[in-house]
Design a protein around this nucleic acid. Structure first.
Lengths: 201, 201, 201, 201
DNA sequence: CATGAATGAGGTTTCATTCAT
DNA sequence: TATGAATGAAACCTCATTCAT
């Protein structure tokens, strides 16, 4: 009588996403997660060190998976690659709206309290995006020896914020994900181009 | 024997912003707010119905002020007007980093639980931005009778998300606000243009 | 623009009876009493030492008045006198149902915490009843030198309990006070007779 | 490793009776109950929904037990049966003076706030007494087709009030319970007879 | 490994009382 | 006298975490 897939830890993570999405992290009760996961309350602590740890692992796994998939995107054109990366990020969250909800409301906790180890996948994903960005900037470069790193990081952040809002929009409306996705990417691409365009002479 | 500046309610709101920024809404203690405000714990309840109400009023006042200032922006070119609006939004939050922090982490609670009355300023600000957006879309229009409203709302959301991330970036770095602001606006403008551009023939 | 009758203290006492009847002593708020009395909250403390003191004075005045009226009952037959006394007690509370409610629920606090001074009227009323009782017992006596004082006190208490329940009954029904009163007195008289009857030979 | 006697819920109820008797319901602290019961404060809420619920269950159990025992009283003479019922009521409370104290001061809360379910035993006890009363009234009847129901209810209430006062008397004196009991029943019987006696021709 | 009964620290809110005006 | 804004102590209840079984 095995559960659909994966071990008990995954069951718990999955249940936690539902509960965090419904109640928010602070109001969420560990016992509720256990109930949804179909395990005893105490069993949670066999797999996780506590409620916060569950949240960390949720995002840790999310970013691990995402960064791995991002690494497989091989489009030669860095602009399209970045486009694909953002699309992938959007798709992963659009596919699990509860997870998206948790991302929107609780991801800051992950960044604030997770260990470097737990943030590894996140850092990797960020770096992958950064690489594409750099390639765009230098590729268009006509010799510019020092692309503005700060500006690039900010641009990258800006795009993430845009995708974030697109997800928020998706959750609060009945618009098909595909339409939101394409609109969102249109703006993102334009933003990238603007950000990497060299200041007028 | 008046208080330093403003009434006691404002003192409490101000203190709450500091505490919410430091501890987050859920962990924030009313007694800590009272201590920072220099009033007795019970006095909080003379001015507010509870902790949640304080949060609502913080954002309610913020949006009321902002929407009023946004209404004064009179640039004839809607694109520049929108640019000014986003800048204004950014400036208000960049000027009070604790408030920005609270905005980033707790604004969703405001949208989820505040009354329509409390959300009035927010709605007004949104509408002001929407109007500029519509003007851009139709102004550029060559007869297009029905600008895509959903697309416009999404674009607006996208921009807010971008500004949001710019603020997040600002808080986590030592970059001067001015630099973040200009970079952010560059991307925003490019996004707007892309969003309102008619699909290629 | 004087109030109907009496001074501010009486207004407060009257208001307190309404509030105590409605909310119970513990839940009753001093500010609510002040509001009903039409005075400022702080003014309460010009006339009374606190909430408990108000309760004490309510009952103190009640018993003072009652004991004085009881002293005027001059029926020569002690049985009828006792009957009149119980009737008087009933009438006073039946005439002010809020006061009756307060009596039913809070009188024990008066006995437990009031000073001897405050309980003076109560003691006097009790003594008046006791005297009638004793007269009945000895009057019927055929030489019994020592009427059973304990038994008499208990009998008196029993009667008070009966009247108490009659009042409770009155408050929870629509029966006319007069009917309740007469039924109640019928039982009381029978009880008295039984209590003072000498054990069968 | 079982607890001394009974389950933890009973321990808590027992402790609550002591604390309610000592401090009154409103002043009683849940933590004090827990301490006396020898459990953690939080454990209270595993067995009861709150402080009020504890009070309800105390009286609910009391009346359940009492009504069951009352049902076993089989004296053919309804007068003696009623006598036994009152005696039983007295005995149960005289046997636990703290419970008696709680009854005297807090029973009205039970009647005012308990659910019909919780009041079931109370209603049953009342009905048992009513039945005996009716039997007395009709048994003595010489054809009276409609005994005065209101008068009977009032008489029953009167008796309960008398027993109530007897208990109050018992608590405030050193008189042996047995003496209080017999005196009390003497008066009660006389009252019943008077109440059920047909008005003189 | 698994459980869930038990714990107790901790926080929001109420309200009797005070006192500056 | 009269006021009512201000106070702050106090208490119910929740829930993350533990541990005996």
């Amino acid at each position: 009588m095995r559960r659909k897939e994966g071990d008990k830890a995954s069951e718990i993570l999955n249940a936690a996403i539902r509960i965090f999405a419904r109640d928010g992290f602070d109001k969420a009760q560990v016992s509720a997660i256990a109930a949804v996961a179909g395990v005893g309350t105490g069993s949670i602590y066999l797999y996780f060190t506590g409620k916060t740890n569950i949240l960390h692992i949720i995002f840790s796994r999310f970013w691990d998976h995402l960064s791995q998939e991002m690494a497989t995107l091989q489009n030669r054109d860095p602009l399209f690659r970045l486009n694909d990366q953002l699309g992938l990020f959007f798709d992963h969250l659009a596919a699990d709206r509860d997870l998206a909800r948790v991302y929107l409301r609780e991801h800051h906790r992950f960044l604030e309290t997770a260990t470097a180890q737990e943030r590894h996948g996140y850092a990797a994903a960020l770096e992958t995006g950064r690489a594409a960005f750099l390639e765009i900037a230098t590729g268009r470069g006509d010799g510019s020896p020092q692309p503005d790193q700060v500006g690039m990081d900010l641009s990258q952040a800006f795009l993430f914020g845009g995708v974030r809002s697109a997800l928020e929009f998706l959750l609060s409306s009945d618009i098909p994900a595909e339409k939101v996705r394409s609109n969102m990417l249109t703006m993102a691409m334009a933003g990238i181009l603007a950000a990497t365009r060299r200041p007028e002479r």
